[in-house]
Amino acid sequence: MTEDELPESLAEIRDDFLDLPEPERLQLLLEFSQELPEAPPEYADHPELYERVAECQSPVFIAIELEGDVVTMHATAPEEAPTTRGFASILAQGLSGLTAAEVLAVPDDFPQSIGLTRVVSPLRISGMTGMLLRAKRQVRAKAMM
């Protein structure tokens, strides 16, 4: 998948970051952290529906739903970890609504493409990459059911 083939939702997010000077990108990431969609109530009492993202230092959990061929990503991340929460929000907003094939075609290096590699630590970028890879693995597993 080339840069131009990135799903529109993720391409828009990437472009929003790249259009800003580097110092302002962190502020946009913090804004995303405040926009992490709430998971549906049925997930609150069932933590087993989530998968822990071990690559993240903070406790981040994701769950993928596949209804027909449409993906919805749910994520939880603590408010005291705004960078990680921002990354989870970017992926939840960017992947939800895509088809399974579109999610699976997202380049694994998408987190490196949004212009934050010099603003946040490599460990944090690695955490976002871990979230994306786990989301893709869950999509693959659910699509095969």
Score class of each variant (00 low, 15 high):
Ile62Arg: 00
Thr83Tyr: 00
Gly86Thr: 06
Val60Ile: 02
Gln34Thr: 09
Pro78Asn: 07
Glu31Met: 13
Ser58Lys: 14
Glu42Tyr: 06
Leu66Glu: 02
Ser58Ile: 07
Asp45Phe: 03
Ala88Gly: 04
Pro41Cys: 01
Leu49Glu: 05
Glu42Ala: 11
Gly94Asn: 12
Val60Phe: 07
Thr72Asp: 06
His74Pro: 13
Asp69Glu: 08
Leu66Arg: 07
Ala44Val: 14
Arg52Met: 00
Ser33Met: 07
His74Ser: 03
Ser96Phe: 09
Ala77Asn: 09
Glu35His: 15
Tyr43Val: 03
Gly68Asn: 00
Gln93Tyr: 14
Glu35Cys: 14
Val60Arg: 02
Ala77Ser: 02
Glu65Ile: 08
Ser89Cys: 02
Pro78Gln: 01
Asp45Gln: 14
Phe87Val: 04
Gln34Glu: 05
Ala75Phe: 09
Pro82Glu: 11
Ala75Glu: 13
Glu67Gln: 15
Ala63Gln: 09
Ser58Arg: 10
Val53Cys: 10
Asp69Pro: 12
Tyr43Gly: 06
Pro40Gln: 08
Asp45Met: 07
Asp69Gly: 03
Glu31Asn: 02
Glu35Phe: 03
Leu98Cys: 06
Cys56Trp: 02
Arg52Thr: 11
Ala92Ile: 00
Thr83Arg: 05
Ser96Arg: 03
Glu31Trp: 01
Tyr43Thr: 08
Leu91Trp: 13
Met73Asn: 14
Gly94Phe: 14
Ser89Asn: 02
Phe87Lys: 00
Ser58Trp: 12
His74Leu: 00
Leu36Met: 07
Phe32Glu: 14
Glu48Ile: 13
Pro82Gly: 04
Pro59Met: 14
Glu79Arg: 00
Met73Lys: 07
Ala88His: 01
Leu49Cys: 09
Pro37Asp: 13
Val71Thr: 10
Ala77Asp: 10
Pro40His: 06
Arg85Asn: 13
Val70Lys: 14
Glu55Met: 12
Glu38Met: 05
Tyr50His: 06
Gly68Ala: 01
Gly68Phe: 08
Leu91Cys: 11
Phe87Gln: 11
Gly86Phe: 01
Pro59His: 02
Gln57Trp: 08
Val70Pro: 10
Ala77Lys: 05
